[in-house]
């Protein structure tokens, strides 16, 4: 009987100690340091698409002490179960030009079917909205008149303003300046052509930042390698540096 009791207590000891240790480890990984796999092409060449493991410091959680140019891990705002690695390229108060190369008239998909005819181009710009848009707009005007009990006297001007906004959103949303709001930051990948980042989901709240990446290991590298400059390198270890250079133009 005593034997059974003691083996029971030993078993309970193992279970509770592993629970306590597991919780400790989890908190450690959550609040202090984490070593985690990264994947995806958005940060090449800083981080490889496969096989790169990042050393993440959690002291920088929620955007504390971060600077422009730091590489961070954050929760994706549109998919909270995914985490992304990006570089901070704007802090609160900074003015950002989103990305004129992405949504410009020149390579917008709507403009490809033109045949290069300038007349057609002008025509399209004037019409701007499609049939669906006009229907929605009429519905919207009706709705406003019903609920706010206010008449929109100048329906044409109202329509023009809405159309202007719609056109701007459709063709020009990427060629715009944005001021990063308080408590947010602007994140972009290093590989701009393969990265889904602030250019599409706009400024990210700093509450979603989970930590700062300070170094990385590439597991495809040999375990121990001697560099060109005779330094020992374990699993392709490298520091990930803040390569941001502030270009200050002095006005003379």
């Amino acid at each position: 009987m005593t034997n059974l009791n003691s083996s029971f207590s030993v078993g309970m000891g193992i279970i509770t100690w592993s629970l306590r240790f597991g919780c400790f480890l989890h908190l450690f990984m959550d609040e202090i340091y984490e070593f985690t796999e990264t994947s995806g092409e958005s940060m090449t060449p800083t981080l490889q698409p496969n096989g790169d493991y990042a050393h993440v410091l959690k002291r920088y959680k929620y955007g504390k002490d971060l600077k422009v140019g730091d590489v961070i891990v954050a929760v994706k705002p549109t998919e909270p179960h995914h985490r992304v690695c990006k570089r901070i390229t704007g802090l609160p108060g900074d003015m950002i030009l989103i990305d004129p190369s992405m949504g410009s008239d020149l390579n917008s998909f709507d403009k490809i079917g033109y045949n290069g005819n300038d007349k057609d181009k002008d025509k399209d710009k004037k019409i701007g909205g499609d049939k669906e848009f006009d229907e929605k707009l009429n519905e919207y005007i009706e709705y406003i008149e019903k609920t706010d009990k206010q008449d929109i006297q100048d329906k044409e001007t109202f329509k023009k303003l809405e159309l202007k906004e719609y056109n701007e959103n459709k063709y020009n949303s990427m060629n715009r300046y944005i001021i990063v709001p308080e408590g947010h930051c602007w994140l972009t990948g290093d590989n701009l052509s393969q990265s889904l980042d602030s250019r599409s989901y706009r400024p990210v709240p700093m509450g979603l930042i989970k930590g700062k990446i300070i170094a990385a290991n590439l597991i495809f590298e040999p375990f121990i390698k001697i560099d060109e400059d005779d330094k020992l390198n374990v699993y392709g270890f490298r520091w990930i540096k803040n390569n941001f250079e502030d270009e200050i133009y002095s006005i003379e």
Binding site: Y62, E182, H184, I209
Partner: peptide, 8 residues
Amino acid sequence: IRSPTNPS
């Protein structure tokens, strides 16, 4: 929620 304007 964690405030979007002030993460602390």
